[in-house]
Design a protein around this nucleic acid. Structure first.
Lengths: 179, 179
DNA sequence: CGTGGAGTTGAATACGATCAACACCGGTGG
DNA sequence: CCACCGGTGTTGATCGTATTCAACTCCACG
């Protein structure tokens, strides 16, 4: 969820440092916050019945990440959120997110834009999962997130794209060969 | 995007009648509105390079449907929106959607809830496409949208789930056999 | 009626998953 | 400094799920 300006809603807070691999929200536990990433990169993911991780979202600098499901689910998190790199994040209590209406209209507008961008990004993601092949999904990913594709380990990109690491490795190999 | 109350933002407008199959927004054309479904059911979909339809969303009664992409894309629609059944819809000009901030706080709150529900639904959708098998996706669909699953033709459900009609037919056969 | 779309079923195919082995670092401790 | 280790990515062989192509039935609707 990129924006032109830093997210003013919590500009004043001082960032919290999280180390690579540190878990911020754990699936199944009580949780009610979102995170704004100042520096580094977070991710959210779920673990299926076979123990396989499926990455729902990456959140590099200036993105917001959270699990909206806890909201529906009595505050119990569905997704796990952890740090892909050493990062700096600002925490946003949910109460703040869900009660913006009373605030400055500019903030409301900003929050709206964030939501729009998010829905737009998700639309893209759904369409790609529905209609694109493994190769097309990967090409679209590196085109859309060039700076992410060289920071993230292959296996995480694979998980995000709905592929196994082996398959993505082969896709990439074909792409190199093809030029 | 269900809600407890009818969407107040355009309660006053009188609904427009659209016939089954009628196209409201066509991919590639100028468009800048969303629709609130009073009665019936709309859908949005994209057509891939091979001419295959991929349904992004269904919108039965009390849902809102639109293509956020036109907003990013100079007003040119990416998705096509048409009527699955004879329907009654209220049109919402985009200008209204994107400038809610100046309005009554209750409306802002309502719009926020709509966005939240939408993001939540999309999260579910992405997770299911990533992690679930054909059979699991179908079962989840009929569980989540029981009233839709018996109104829609199989081939549309298949398209929504990212399957071919043949595959869904077989999945369904197995399910019947299994009980 | 009869015609065309929807759904089903079968056979062959393809794409990506799985299982397994190995190469290649990057970091750690001896 | 080097030997070791675990994690990451690559490659090969095989497997499985869903696709594709084709034929056929069954209605719904003209």
């Amino acid at each position: 969820m990129p924006s032109q300006n830093p997210f003013q809603l919590f500009e004043s807070e001082k960032p919290r440092l999280v180390k690579k691999g540190e878990v911020l929200i754990k699936s199944g536990q009580k949780a009610s916050e979102a995170f704004y990433v100042v520096k580094g990169c977070l991710r959210s993911y779920m673990v299926d019945a076979k123990g396989k991780e499926h990455i729902y979202q990456f959140a590099p600098e200036d993105w917001i990440i959270s699990d909206l499901e806890f909201f529906k689910n009595k505050g119990v998190a569905f997704l796990t959120i952890d740090a892909v790199e050493n990062s700096e994040v600002k925490s946003i209590p949910t109460s703040r997110i869900f009660n913006i209406t009373a605030e400055d209209p500019a903030l409301v507008q900003e929050a709206f834009n964030k939501f729009q961008n998010r829905v737009y990004a998700l639309q893209q993601r759904v369409i790609q999962l529905l209609a694109y092949s493994a190769e097309e999904r990967y090409q679209e990913f590196i085109k859309t997130y060039p700076n992410l594709s060289n920071r993230l380990p292959l296996k995480m990109i694979a998980s995000y794209l709905g592929l196994t690491p082996e398959s993505l490795s082969r896709v990439r190999k074909e792409l190199v060969k093809g030029r």
